[in-house]
Nucleic acid binder design. Structure first.
Lengths: 255, 255
DNA sequence: CCGCGCGGGCGTACGGCGTACGGCCGCGTT
DNA sequence: AACGCGGCCGTACGCCGTACGCCCGCGCGG
């Protein structure tokens, strides 16, 4: 299937799945399975053990059914992952917007970070095109409407949101890598560096990378303090918001 | 192997591979294979057909050897990918830095974007921890030294670079998705939307997502103009640089 | 009241992946 | 002349996604 591709086939089928177009079964006792039960089981597995542990056999096993039964409800793994993603977006909070635009945008960034922390597999699954499900649409609509009134063009508004969400994803990915490397190797971040450092020093002739060594050491100590990724998130977010402020102010002045 | 994990095993072995610690073979006629030949073949395959097409069998075939022969030089696929990544970093230009810091940082961003465009598979391979090879070290050192003197702390310098490179990667990923979806489906971006739009309209009751529809349409037209991703890259980059300027100026004022 | 169609459920099997393991073969050394 | 070792690789195993076709039991038309 080529590592979580999605919707390569019939768009109608994929979209219908996302938007849950289904005539309610007229059968007396409803079927044992459903798209929702499958998606829920799949998300639980991915949350607990990562995307690599998510196999069709595993999902079926968790539901106590045969492997191929899953395919009655879902055309393939790629489509299942797409529904998982849209479902995850659906659980995000969408409180009434308040505060100035910067406060709102910052809030959106933090909510997205929290989502990725709850579902780290999303960071590896969201390759290719957006999912176009109802929950993603709702999220996009919600987030856009928090910043539509800041005086930029529609195209710029979209670019602003893309920029902020891109930063969140980058930072979330960095943070997540630390976590799942710990799970996979059983070593903490510090232990990992300690096991590699002596070998690295063997190869690097002294003074070969002066700036990298100095800055890397400083950043590494920060990192070891167990909040390295959070620092990168915060620092970057403030820089991004500052940068957006500059255009917003410019536009306000020129009006 | 769990989708391109790397260096789960012996750090010594992995690092030795990256840094090419090898006694030159005393044999008369050197061996047919070498790490470099393998890596070159692998990069060619990944460049041409994507990461999914990169299999050990395929690499061996391209070199005209048996599959398992590759394992004489490389402990596994994860390590091969790690060496591919470090090798790719090695081919980046590192001209003498010139201009002010903003010019330099912008140049770095563009060079990184070009790298990702030449080797889109890197965008999907660089999960987990950095590779710690000589070329990545050289790159990190080079890029840091372009901005060490802007008046920020070492930790902040690192965060600045991380922020900029993160943005580049986000934008590159977005651009790359368009390209390889076209390859996989045989449809252009416009065709893809046209095939999905009627179905989407069926599901979305009119006016359900007003802001998303309006802004999405505007952004989509931009997108259709075939330089959507580039716009996002440029817009975001300028915002990020503006944001960095703010701290730099603050620091300069307080000194 | 009967039988039949149909849809949910699933056993089996196929092709492809990464790679463990053990053997073969020819060279450089002793 | 014998040996050992490094390069090479055929075979096989366990995993994956999923195509295909069968079975079974329910609800409905006659």
């Amino acid at each position: 299937m080529a590592s979580e591709r999605k919707a390569t086939a019939d768009p109608a089928r994929s979209l219908a799945l996302l938007w849950r177009t289904r005539e309610p079964t007229s059968r007396s006792a409803g079927p044992a399975l459903s798209v929702d039960r499958i998606v829920r089981a799949a998300i639980d597995i991915a949350d607990a053990e990562g995307l690599d542990a998510l196999t069709m056999r595993r999902v079926a096993e968790a539901l106590g059914v045969g492997t191929m039964s899953v395919y009655t409800y879902v055309p393939g793994k790629a489509e299942l992952v797409a529904v998982m993603i849209d479902t995850a977006y659906g659980e995000m909070p969408r409180p009434a917007v308040e505060g100035d635009w910067r406060t709102r945008l910052e809030r959106i960034a933090r909510d997205n970070l929290a989502l990725y922390q709850r579902h780290p597999w999303m960071l590896r699954a969201e390759t290719t095109r957006p999912v176009l499900g109802p929950h993603l649409m709702a999220k996009y609509d919600y987030e856009l409407s928090a910043i539509v009134d800041i005086g930029l063009t529609d195209v710029e508004i979209d670019a602003v949101l893309t920029l902020v969400l891109g930063h969140v994803k980058s930072a979330a990915r960095a943070a997540s890598e630390v976590v799942d490397l710990e799970r996979e190797t059983g070593m903490t971040d510090g232990q990992w560096w300690q096991s590699h450092a002596p070998w690295l020093e063997t190869f690097m002739t002294a003074g070969a990378y002066p700036t990298a060594s100095r800055v890397g050491t400083a950043a590494g100590q920060q990192h070891a303090a167990a909040y390295g990724p959070e620092y990168a998130f915060e620092f970057g977010l403030q820089r991004v918001l500052d940068g957006i402020s500059v255009v917003v102010a410019e536009r306000a002045a020129n009006r």
